[in-house]
Structure formats: structure tokens, C-alpha cells
Design a protein around this nucleic acid. Structure first.
Lengths: 231, 231, 231, 231
DNA sequence: AATGAATGAGTCTTCATTCAT
DNA sequence: TATGAATGAAGACTCATTCAT
């Protein structure tokens, strides 16, 4: 029945809305059921518990995230380097428009780190480990990156990226930069007297450095441009 | 009296120990008082509430963090680029050895982002906003970065970093990379079948790319090396 | 379902019992839940907090109080003055038999005074102001008095009360006397050597004075009597 | 040493100030010590505990109250009835200007009531019963009333009050009216649509009724007037 | 007389989760 | 599927009071 899938989606969307406006902690399960207009019990029928719901949200986040990566990868008439540049912009945009989804992705990265360390795995809430969504996420969380790696590979082939670079390492380095850049947007936004930069001034320089880091000898006829209309 | 300062420190150290092993949420205020061997009331005498305590912890984190930056900056006989390379290693090392402190720093960056956005400032727990430590942090959280900027400036002077780079933007880009890199260590550590990289293989490549991004024409006699004994 | 209303009533009755025997402050919410035989959580499901519960109790007090007034007003074959006399006795009786309810009424009068004074409104516990029962009380707390005013009006019509009296002012003066009289029963009960009066000796004189204050020229065939079996 | 007496007075005055502005419950002992500028320990040296302090405050309240009564009683060129009228006004004025003191007096009346009832004496906080001030109050709390009784007696003698009235009973009835009247000022202040009276309109009528209740055949040359500038 | 750090019992309140219907 | 009353463990925080100095 598509009915059920629908209910599940309604709950998830309500959760996203509420987590976004009030935060995860501050949102009560009852708020969510109320927002959807169903009983608490039914919510629990679809999602085993709050953690499970959040893991489902995280799964959705990764799916959407992968779509972003895929779209950029499949965009026509661009060099690999241009796609990488586009990706940075898209990810930052995604983060600002889907704050809670992006947070869920970052949170999942922390979770994976703990999961991979024998001594800190016990710190993870058992309910998370039990969630089927979590298990699924362990399988698929590398998928967005695969498109990224392919972009780098393409860049090497089309000469926009230096041929001596190793695609995986290069892409994960790029991803590091993206993640850090997004986090950076908070502090540099601080309007302190002594701070000379802000998000608007940081972005072009950041992209320029990223391109410098990557670019090969063969330039695209139209050099990788930096959009400034982002923020 | 040094006595009081001491108590404050004892509480903070106990909190760091417990937050590290059980997590912030899971640690009860009573656990902390018990760990120090004092009454709950006294803990509240020194720290207004749990959030205030965490902000004090964050303050300590930034102080130690700044020390790391300062030490690297003041290290003798190194080019600016070498110092930047060292900094990456030091920060990652700091993060792994002082997990909760590093988390507090990242958490504070998120907080500052919310604080700077009119619409999301209300999501911040009022107790955090009231904390004197939070107010202090708003003033000082750029300090570590200042040393970083100076490292870049030095690198430009000594020729190890390209002269056309703008120090502030360059450093904040580097910092972005560092932050993201640290987050990356979780996912890439996953021993999945299809993933070809892990922290050990990522780090040298990451540093190489960072150096490529920055380096000037004049190389140090001894090239910036990459320590591999880190993890 | 009458089930729910029932639970609410059960809680309220338990609260009345406990507040009466131990006092409001000394009664813990857990005592109440235990007395009813339900969980603490359920108590909070029906009453938002302790203040809300007390306001509900106050509402019940006013309702019962109004019933007393109505009954006296509707009693047959009595002049207005006789009804007023009865009312005094009934109120004092009500106060002694429903101590906590009467206290709640007096407490609410103090609350209203603060509420009506700009400068002292802030002294009122916010939880009280938020209570729906409090809001309701603001609307209905004059209702008992309305019956009182009608008694005076009747008295004027039937000649038992002086025709030149203004009903509202007269009744509120009477009510003042009643309230004060009830409070008086404490101190005069003190068996001090030098005090010559006690509740028993005070009441008849009090009623006589009250009647003197009010009475018209036309006396009822049977003069307004004073029951002495009250205390 | 007058020093000590002074400290005691300072504490008491600070308590009165704070209880007035924040309420008894909301005022912490530390607030009081801070207001006086001394340590908490010293406050406890002068007052055994918070209840003891409040009983001391109550004692002061009765002393001041007695002064009001005495002054009215000793005022020259007035009939007994005029003095009674003045007393009402003075008491209401006292209550509005010394809210906490007046509240303390009313509270003490409730306390005495409990104290006189075998079954409710146990509800009284033991700390109150232990307070020397409480013991003293039991002895002196009738003193203000004595002046009142004397006013009635004078009124009977000078013909302004009916000769058949029994002074004690009459005065306690008057006091009842005063107490109730003061309480009444809260509710009647409510600006409801259907309520036709307010404190200003109630007072003259109240005083008129009081005078009607008491007055003898011989009128003073200048009839007992009603001041309206009170509120 | 004086300090103020230290105590710790006391309680309200929250909310994820369950289960009888 | 669907409900929502019922549970109860969990935990932060207060503040009157004490006592070593």
C-alpha cells in the first residue's frame, strides 16, 4: 500500500520541519505526531523511537545529498574542475537551505568515527545501533563521495586537474575543505572589530585556492568561474 | 586564595573526564560532584548550571587551542609553510587526545553561527547566552586564528608561500581544511570493501595538496616533511 | 468519556485532602499522585503544575461558595435581612468545614489585588498567570457577590433593610465584615487572661450590630434570629 | 552595646524592603545579608532562622500598628465615633504603605487560629513555635485592640456611640469590618464590566454604614466626616 | 563578632515509550 | 491501523542552614 509509505513520509517531513525550527532536543515526539495530525502511538508504529526517526532523517539527508552530487557530476559541458567548484557552492547552499539534514550528515560522520573506535563505540546510544536506518547508512554513506571521486577523475582526464593527483585522496581532501568551509561560515560572520573577513570575502578566495590546488596545465577555454551571488 | 580557583579547576577537570567517557548528555551534575568528592551544591556554587560549566570547558578548550597555535608559531627554524603543516598535525593530534575539548570548539562554532543569524539566535539555550564564559568566548574565539594568519604572513615573507596570497583568507581556508579533515577521519576509517582509503593513506596526500596549494617558488632546503607516526 | 473528568476530580479531591491536613507547601506532588494511586506523570497530564492545580482548587472553591450564596438567596420565607444573617453563618461554617477552599478564596483576593496593581503584578508567579483556571477565575470571582447584592435588594424591597442603602456598596461592606469576622475568630479564640471575649460571645453581638446597621422600620413578624449552634 | 541592636535593626529593615518587593518566599536569606552588607553567618547570629526573622518582623508590625491605634486614641477634640472612623482610614493607609507588615499581622492571626485549635497546631512550622518573637507576640497581639475598645468606650461616654453597645464585642466587630474592607480592595478594583463599584466608591458608603451601625442619639456638633483623599 | 565556602535534603517537572482498547 | 491515557525513570537546581576559621 502506498498509504503507509505516505504516512511515513508525512512524519518525516513534520520531523524535519520541527527539528529545523526548534532543534532536535527541544522537539518532542508529541509535537511531531501533533504536527502530522496523528496519534503518538502511530508515530511509534512507523518509527521505533526518536533515534530511529533521526536515523531515517539522516538516510533521507544522504539520499538528497547524493542527488546533489549526482546532478553536479552529470551536468554537461563542464570540466572536472568546474564541477568541483560547482559542488562546493551546491553543498554550502544545501547546508544553508537544509540545515537539519546537513547537521544530520555531520552528526553521522561523528557517529561513524565512534563506531570505528573500539573504545568509544559504547558511547553510542544502543537505540541508534539497533536502528535499521543506521545499518543501511553504514552501507551507503560513501555514495555521494563516489560521484566526487568521479569528478576528480574526469578532471584529470580532461586536463583541468593535475594528472599526478590520486582521485580518492584528492576528493576526500576536497570534501574536508568543503565541510570545514561550511563550519567556518559561523565564526567569520562575527562582526568583530579586528576580524577582516566575512563569508562573502572568504568564499572567492577559498575557491581560488581550491582551484590552485587542483588545476592542471590545460585550462578550459572559459576558466572555472566563481559565482558570487550565493549568499 | 588559590583554594577557590583550585576547586573550580577540580570540577572542570572532573567534568572533562566524565564528558569524555560518558558524553555530555549522559553525564549528570551529581556524577561530577561525586567525582570531585564534593556536594552538588558546591558545584553549582562555582558554575551556575550545566551549560555554564560547558562554556567554561569551552573557554579552556580555546585557551589550550591557542597555546597549540602559539607554540607552532613560535617554533624556531621553520618556514611559514612548515609551520602550517605542523599545525595540521598538531590540531588533529589535539582533537584525538582532547576529544571533548575539540568537540566543544566545534560546538562553539555552530553556536556562533546561530548567534549571528537573527532568526536562529532564539534556538540557543538562554542559559548559554547568560553564561559569562560564553560572553568571554565571543571576544576571544578568534585568537588562535591570529597565530595562523601570522604563520601565513611569515610564509609569504620567507618565500615558502606564494606572495600573491592574502593571509587572512588563506588561513581561514587552511583552517577549513583542518576542521573538515578531522571530521573526515571518521568516515574514511570505515573499513568498507569499496573504500580504498583510510586515515593513514589520506593524511600524506592531504598535506601534499595543502602544500601544493600554498607553496611559493623558494623551497626550504629541507622540504616540508610529513610525519606519519600520528595516528 | 466521563472517565477523564473523573480522574481530574480524583486528583483535585486528593489535593484538597492533603492540602488540608499538611498544608499547600508541605504537600508534594508525589504525595498527591500516590494518594490517588496513579503516576506522577498522569497528575501532570491533568494539571500543568502545582500552581495550576491550586488554581483549579480555587475555581472549585468559588463554585461551591457561589452555591452557598445561591442557596441562601433562594431559601423561601425569609426577608432579605434574614438571608444576610444566614449568609454570615453559612460562610463562617463553610470556612471552618472547608478550610483550604476558604483559604484559596482569600488567597485569590490577594492575588487579584496584586494583579490590579501595575507595580506588584510582577510578584505573581508566572505559572499562576498562565493557568487557564486563573483566567477563568478572573471572570467569575464576582458571581457569589451578585447573589449577595440581590439579597440586599430584596431586603430593601421587603422593608427589612433601610431603603436609602445602595445595594452594591452595602453588600460589599457586609462581605468585608464577614471576611474580617472569620479572620477574627483566630485571635479572639486566644484564651488570654485579659481578653473577655471568645468566638461564642462575639458572634451574637456581631450579628446584632450587622442587623442594626441594616435594618429598616418594618420588622419581620419573627425577628432575625441568631443561631448559636454554629461553632 | 547599641551596636548589636543596630545590626539587628538593619537586618530587619533590609528584610522588610526585600519581602515587600519580592515577597517572602522569593527572598533568600543571602539576599538579605547582601542587602545589609554582611555575611550570611552573621544574619543567622541575630536571627535563628528565616521564620524567626519573620516573627521579629511581625513583632515590629504589631508595635507600629499599636502606635497607630494609640495615636488615634490620643488625638484631641474628637468623639469616640470620629476616632473609630479615623482608625479605619489609618489602618487602610497603614496597610497600603506597609504591605508586608500588614500581611504579617494577618498571617499572625491565621497562625493564632491554628495555634488555638488542637488538631491544626501541628501544621505550624516548629521553627515558628520555637521563636521567642512568636512567644512574645502571643502576649502582646491584643494590645492594639485595647485602644480600639477604649475608643468605643469613650464614644459611649460622649454619646457618639449607642450606650447599649458592649465595647469589646463592638470593637472586635469593627475590627472585623476593617480587616475585611482591606481585603475587599483587591477584588473591587477589578475593572469588570458588570461591577459597579471600586475602592473609591466603596469607602464612603462603608464608613457611612459603620457610623450608622454605631452612632448614638447625641451627634457631635461637627458630624463624623469622611475623608475622600485617601486613595 | 564575622566570614562565606560547603552541605544535601528536598521536589518539581519532563518526555520517551508502552499498551489496553 | 489507530488512539491517547498512563507510566516512571531521570535529573537539574534551590536554598536554608552550618561550621571551620
Amino acid at each position: 500500500m502506498p498509504k503507509e509509505k505516505n504516512k511515513e513520509k508525512l512524519i518525516l517531513d513534520a520531523a524535519i520541519r520541527l527539528f529545523t525550527s526548534k532543534g532536535y532536543q527541544a522537539t518532542r515526539m508529541s509535537d511531531i505526531s501533533q504536527e502530522v495530525g496523528m496519534s503518538k502511538g502511530l508515530t511509534y508504529f512507523y518509527y521505533k523511537n526518536k533515534e530511529d526517526l533521526f536515523m531515517a532523517l539522516t538516510k533521507k539527508a544522504f539520499d538528497q545529498f547524493k542527488d546533489e552530487f549526482r546532478e553536479v557530476y552529470l551536468s554537461k559541458g563542464k570540466t572536472g574542475l568546474e564541477k568541483i567548484t560547482d559542488l562546493v557552492i551546491r553543498v554550502v547552499d544545501f547546508a544553508s537551505k537544509n540545515q537539519i539534514l546537513y547537521d544530520a550528515i555531520i552528526n553521522f560522520m561523528d557517529l561513524v568515527k565512534k563506531y570505528n573506535q573500539e573504545e568509544s563505540r559504547k558511547e553510542i546510544d544502543p537505540l541508534i545501533l539497533e536502528s535499521q536506518h543506521f545499518q543501511k547508512l553504514l552501507e551507503i554513506h560513501h555514495e555521494p563521495a563516489k560521484f566526487g571521486v568521479m569528478m576528480v577523475s574526469q578532471g584529470i582526464k580532461d586536463g583541468s586537474i593535475r594528472p599526478e593527483l590520486q582521485p580518492e585522496i584528492t576528493f576526500y581532501t576536497i570534501w574536508s575543505m568543503i565541510i570545514g568551509f561550511e563550519k567556518m561560515l559561523g565564526p567569520v560572520g562575527y562582526d568583530g572589530k579586528e576580524v577582516k573577513i566575512n563569508p562573502e570575502s572568504l568564499q572567492p578566495g577559498f575557491l581560488k585556492l581550491l582551484q590552485d590546488m587542483l588545476k592542471g596545465t590545460i585550462q578550459a577555454s572559459k576558466p572555472a568561474t566563481v559565482q558570487t551571488s550565493l549568499f
